[in-house]
Design a protein around this nucleic acid. Sequence first.
RNA 1: GCCCCCGUUGUGUAGCGGCCUAGCACGCCUGCCUCUCACGCAGGUAGCGCCGGUUCGAAUCCGGUCGGGGGUACCA
Length: 487
Amino acid sequence: MTVRVRMAPSPTGSPHVGLVRTALFNWAFARHHGGTFVFRIEDTDKERSTQESYDSIIDLMRWLALDWDEGPEVGGPHAPYFQSERSEVYADALARLRESRFAYDCYCTTDEVAARRLESGSKVMGYDGFCRDLTDDQVAAFIAEGRRPIARFRMPDGSITWDDLVRGEVTFETQYVPDFALCRANGDPLYTLVNPVDDALMEITHVLRGEDLLSSTPRQLALYEALKELGIAKLTPEFGHLPYVMGEGNKKLSKRDPEAHALAYRDQGFLPEGLLNYLALLGWSIAADRDVFSLEEMVEKFDIKDVNPNPARFDIKKAEAINASHMRLLSTDEITHRALPYLKRDGVLTDPVSPADQQLLELAMPFVAERINKLTEASRMLGFLFVAEQDFALDEADRAKLVDTDEGQAVLRAAYDALARVEPWSAARISDALTAALVEEMGLKPRVAFGAVRVAVTGKRISPPLFESLELLGRDRGLGRLQSALS
RNA sequence: GCCCCCGUUGUGUAGCGGCCUAGCACGCCUGCCUCUCACGCAGGUAGCGCCGGUUCGAAUCCGGUCGGGGGUACCA
């Protein structure tokens, strides 16, 4: 039997890192087993589903390069893959369930159910089965009152057990799992029906999803039995419940936490492989003594049985460290290529890039690529090289501390004089001249001497190596900036 | 309340009865390197929730307990 897994997000709001982690594990599972990764959009909630959210999810998946074999934009044998386009499918399943007595019509209101539960003193909440065996007269009476029924699934007696792929054997007594609603009174199908029906029809073999769905599993298992008997489902999939991704403290990472938004990591300059590698570590590990790996390695080694059931805290520091490790794995050319969109976005480079800027960028990147941990940091490091002279400005705090002081001014004057005579204008000659004038003649400590020059020339205390920066900047701009830093 | 899940340093994990005086990574702290930053290098810090039991021997098995989380919808 070939493996078929799916990810089925609801297009509501901005995609969460938990969604990425679930998508990644499903994808890795499918690829490891040479199976099929199905992508389905669960937009049954018309009120909350938005086009914007859907676009974000697609954008995210494309960025991460988690490709799907069936689903939006690629189609497949089980199309359509949008639940909003599958109404007839659900209507048909619902009708057959109702005819079969696996489901029954319920005329109760939520308030009536709650009131009865309260009165009975029952410890179990939820529906009490009141309408399970209504007589024709009772039904006629309810309809005469103008009531509209919903369909409920009749939970069997006894217990339901499954061998969870992540947690092992899990058992629920069905007395604690009330008969659940399959549709609204207006006939709209609910998640409880739609999700298992689609999984059945799309012949999903393994359902890997968040722990929050754990308690709805017994209901789905019971529904599957019915669907199989009705010929709608061929098999019951195996289930594996992935641990939560937690935020600070002991709370599930919620949409309100800025760290929850997956696309924000792209904006911050994360590499997709860095984010994915970090997320993989939340509940899984490739080896006892290693945590940086490629997607290919993950695919090769991934086994759902190795997934740890404990909830994991999202640690941005570690995420950045893993990302930094991946940055160091890339060549300078590759980093240049990947940083380009960010440099344009931040206004460091124009779009398209001029040939002169392109050349300067290629000369500068070797000094930058090895010292940045996120792609966005390239903008901070390189800005001074591409800014027009009239727009060049020094960081106020750095200027006050290193430039606008008696010592700073003296250093800059000496630096200007020394540099004015440098020939040819190369990093080596610049280094010699500056060291002679500032360190040897003035007797300054290198960090003090070069600090003032650095701020005057690059605008900040933090920059690529000074001598190389000056060389790239050119004599005119270099001297000009020293000149303007002198008051 | 009831049901279910989870419990190894601050964080993520390795561990599956002796190899554990508990390994790795991030973080943090010390140094080294050094024109800033970053990288790199050397070292340090800190943990098996608790109580019983099984066993010659338990982080590993069993029971209990405590703590945390989730569910309990005509949301997904």
